[in-house]
Design a protein around this nucleic acid. Sequence first.
DNA 1: CCGACGTCCTGCTAGC
DNA 2: TGCTAGCAGGACGTCG
Length: 275
Amino acid sequence: MPELPEVETVVRDLRPLVCGHRITDVINGPHRLRRPWRDEWNERVVGRTVQALDRRGKWIIAELDSPARLLVHLGMTGQFTVAPLTDPLPTHTHWYLVLDGRWRWQFRDIRRFGSVELLADAPTLEAFLAKRLGPEPFALQAQPWLVTLNKSQRPLKALLLDQAVVAGVGNIYADEALFAAGLHPLHPGAATTPAQAERLRVALAAVLTRAIDERGSTIRNYVGGSGLAGRYQTAFAVYGRAGQACRQCGTEIGCIRVAGRSTHYCPTCQPQASA
DNA sequence: CCGACGTCCTGCTAGC
DNA sequence: TGCTAGCAGGACGTCG
């Protein structure tokens, strides 16, 4: 399940493969993605050259040599890769661009929670993202972060999953960051002290940085833009480790349901009433 | 206004 | 051994 480190890895992998390359065709499959691709967008991408590739939260943004901006979300099972056009089309490939008549920049998504769409221009894109996303985790500032947490009665786990609170964190890295900060997932945002908020802010950046260094985590079918898997999953402290011993204290890792998501934590390292 | 919950979708797997 | 129910969860709409 692609979160910030996985999306960042995809973008870094894809950048040299797509930037400077010309889009010579676009093919849209019959299966509807979460946000469907419109046929009238075809003529606005064909003939254009990819100028830049960026990430904001879990969204991938392709800048073209026109005002239009391509916006991609990998959802749960999305794979965004470049392969020779002569390679067989992978199953569940719902959309692709042909680059220079030789390469297939393909969007494969088994569960179709992902999307590929075209936005008119940079301001439209900015408005789209601003409406949905809070700050990047690396750009969080101590005081505003504390204020945001303290404003809400929701548990810290729910706040970390909320893209408007902080952009790019999903179920895996929320659990890992809370462990690294020594905070219980159910700890109410409003009850968070300045010291706790600071621990969480630092832990988030540390966990995400390390995950990016490891090319993200491959849990089910995530691959980077070059088709290479991630390796951070071997470093998980809590995620997917329910019933196993905590690497830090030996206590059995617990699993509870928070904000509709399975949530993994160490009852000893992350005490309910931690100060 | 805020927060909780249901929905989408398919593949894997636990359990009978 | 084979079947099926249940689970996985990111974003967003709806409901209380």
